[in-house]
Amino acid sequence: MSVVINHLTFAYTQGGKPLEPTLVDLDFTIEEGSFLGIIGHTGSGKSTFVRHLNGLLPCEKGAVVVDGHDLSVKAERKTVRSLVGMVFQYPEYQLFADTVFEDVAFGPRNMKLDEAEVKNRVQNAMTLVGLDPERFSARSPFDLSGGERRRAAIAGVLAMHPKYLVLDEPMAGLDPLGRREILALLEKLRTESGCTIIMISHSMDDIANHATKVLVLEKGRVCMYDTPQNVFARAEELQKIGLSVPAVTKLCIEMNRRGASVPASICTREAFLNWIREEKKHA
C-alpha cells in the first residue's frame, strides 16, 4: 500500500478569488515503509502539501489516495485521519488536557475505542516516546520541560497507531539532545513498527542521514524526487534555489574544487570516511 499523489494542484482563495497556485501538478507515490524527507524553503508549499495528506485541505484538482482511500470523497477523510498521523510545528502548543494521560488519550477516544484499548495504547505510546507512564500519566502537560512536552504531543499522535506519520519540522527549537531523541524515535518507529515517516526538515544533515527518499519542492512544484545521494549530488541546483546542502557535501565540493575527486553522491560522514579509507588503501 502507498500514498498516491495524482496530479495535485491547489490554490488558496482570498475573498472568493483563487490566488496563485501553491501546489502545481504534484504527481508521485510515497512507498510504504520509506522515510521521506521534504525540503524547500519557506513558501515552497511544503506545509500546504502535507495538509493534503489527511484531507485538512480539499483536493480540488487531482487526487490524494491513501491505501486506496480517495481523499476527495468526504466520507473517506475520517478513515484516512486514523491512518495518517500529523505532527505539526511546535506540537506542544496543542496540549490541552489536565493530565498527560488524558491528552494522549484524546485521539484514541475520538476513534471510539473501548477504554481498555485506550489505556493500553496511551501507555504504549508514552513508553515509546520515553515518558514513563507511571511517572508522567497524572502530571499536567503544562508542568513538563520543553522536550518532554514535545514528546507528549507526539505520543498523542502515535497512540492513534498511524501507518503514515507526517511531521512538520519536529525538531525545531529543541536542543541537540532533544533533536537526537526525536530522530532516534522516528528510526525506531520505522524499523520496528514499519511506520512510514514523512518529515519536513530544514536540517540537510538529518535528511542525508535518515531519509530514504527526498522530495525537493520549489514554488509548489516537484523539483527533485530521488534518493538523498542523488538529490545532494545536484548540490549546485539546490544552492541555486536557495537551499543548503549537508556539511559533508559542502566539504566534498570544496575538495573537488582543489582537485580531489570525491564522488558527488557522498553526503554523510560515514560515507565520506569510508571513501577516505578506500583511498588510503589504494594509495
Binding site: 559542502k250 565540493i253 570544496e254 575538495m255 574544487r257 582543489r258 582537485g259
Partner: peptide
C-alpha cells in the same frame, strides 16, 4: 568546510 578541504587535500 573551506579550511578543512584546504588542509586535507
Amino acid at each position: 568546510a573551506n579550511r578543512l578541504a584546504e588542509e586535507l587535500c
